[in-house]
């Protein structure tokens, strides 16, 4: 299956605004993060475990246990600082 990944703020500056990622059906959001980390380089740096990274699935805050479906929109971003 294919999911659309979006990045915001400092993650967007490092990785660009969006990319499509091919994943095994039934993968979780955490598995997607693992796949991106495995690429090394900037992905491994800014998505590293222990870094403050939040995620959303289909435009709702989500955690890494969330299961993805084909065509899902996933976003990774730093803690939010609005208001």
């Amino acid at each position: 299956m294919k999911v659309q990944v979006r990045y915001f703020a400092a993650l967007r500056e490092a990785l660009g605004p969006a990319e499509a990622v091919e994943l095994a059906a039934g993968s979780t959001l955490g598995a997607l993060r693992d796949a991106l980390l495995a690429r090394g380089g900037r992905h491994a740096e800014v998505l590293a475990r222990g870094r403050a990274v939040r995620c959303a699935l289909d435009q709702t805050m989500a955690d890494e246990s969330a299961t993805l479906r084909d065509g899902a929109e996933v976003a990774f971003f730093p803690p939010v600082t609005g208001g």
């Binding site: 959303a56 600082t81 609005g82 208001g83």
Partner: peptide, 14 residues
């Protein structure tokens, strides 16, 4: 609403 917005709405300040 403000307490909620500060931590749950996706805005980022630079």
């Amino acid at each position: 609403l403000m307490d909620y917005l500060k931590t749950q709405a996706p805005f980022w300040k630079k």
